[in-house]
């Protein structure tokens, strides 16, 4: 029988989310920012699966499916945007992409 309290999973999820937010804030490369967004989505998924499993209901795992689908769509479109920007600006450092600044 699994005796790990649910708080352990939630605390791990909180730490992973904090690491992902830190990465989004401090990294310059847009692709690393992307990976950190995936980290945050994964930590949310972990919390959802933990809740679903400790509640004895499968509904939480359905939402994990939805999050994974949206993550896949986001990765495809986002990388396409990054490649389009790279073709025009020849860089993916987000502090050098300032064409909206005036």
């Amino acid at each position: 029988m699994n005796l790990i309290p649910i708080e352990y999973y939630l605390i791990l999820s909180a730490f992973m989310f904090a690491v992902g937010v830190t990465g989004v804030l401090i990294r310059k490369n847009a692709i690393v920012v992307f990976m950190c967004i995936e980290l945050m989505l994964n930590s949310g998924n972990l919390a959802l699966v933990a809740f679903s499993s400790y509640m004895g209901s499968s509904a939480g795992q359905i939402f994990v499916f939805f999050v994974m689908t949206v993550a896949a769509a986001e990765a495809a479109v986002g990388l396409a945007i990054i490649i389009a920007i790279f073709r025009n600006k020849l860089t993916v450092n987000i502090d050098e992409i300032n064409i909206f600044k005036w």
Partner: peptide
């Protein structure tokens, strides 16, 4: 961790999709 939580199908989907 998904396997440990008893969510085997989600674990396989995690490996395949991510």
């Amino acid at each position: 961790l998904y396997v440990l939580l008893g969510a085997d199908f989600i674990a396989v989907v995690q490996l395949m999709v991510y």
